[in-house]
Amino acid sequence: MNALKRKLTVVETERCVGCQSCMFACSRRQGEAGLTNSCIAVRSIGGMERGFTVVVCHACENPPCANVCPTDALKKRKGGGVLLQADACIGCGNCLKACLIGAIEMDKTTMKPAICIHCGYCVSFCPHNVLGYNRAKSDEENAQ
């Protein structure tokens, strides 16, 4: 299976205990210890008593974030989502506003968007199988 075609998904939000191990894993994967450039957001739904929302990139097939990028810095990724061409990015933040689920955040140190590349590294650091790593549907499957 082509790794590029797999994508990160949220399998069962209700199992999330809010430990944020996935967020730390995402940063580690990118060569940082901490949270600066984490592309996952785990936060409570208005207080811990109501549980959590786990915000990950949906890997849209026609990504609104790419559509509003004035410099074409966001290239469509096979299997959905985008890949950031950092050199082309001017840090305008249009992509943040275009993503209705808020899956894009600005990395405050580089002033460029932190965007999930669907590498799947975080999945092995979710202790309760909240996250999954699946093959994206092909165009033929989608058509069915």
């Binding site: 205990v17 430990c19 191990s21 202790p127």
Partner: peptide, 16 residues
Amino acid sequence: GRRLACSHCPVGCIHI
């Protein structure tokens, strides 16, 4: 009704 964890602790010992 729910179990919770502290930040950066995968254990989740908090019982609600």
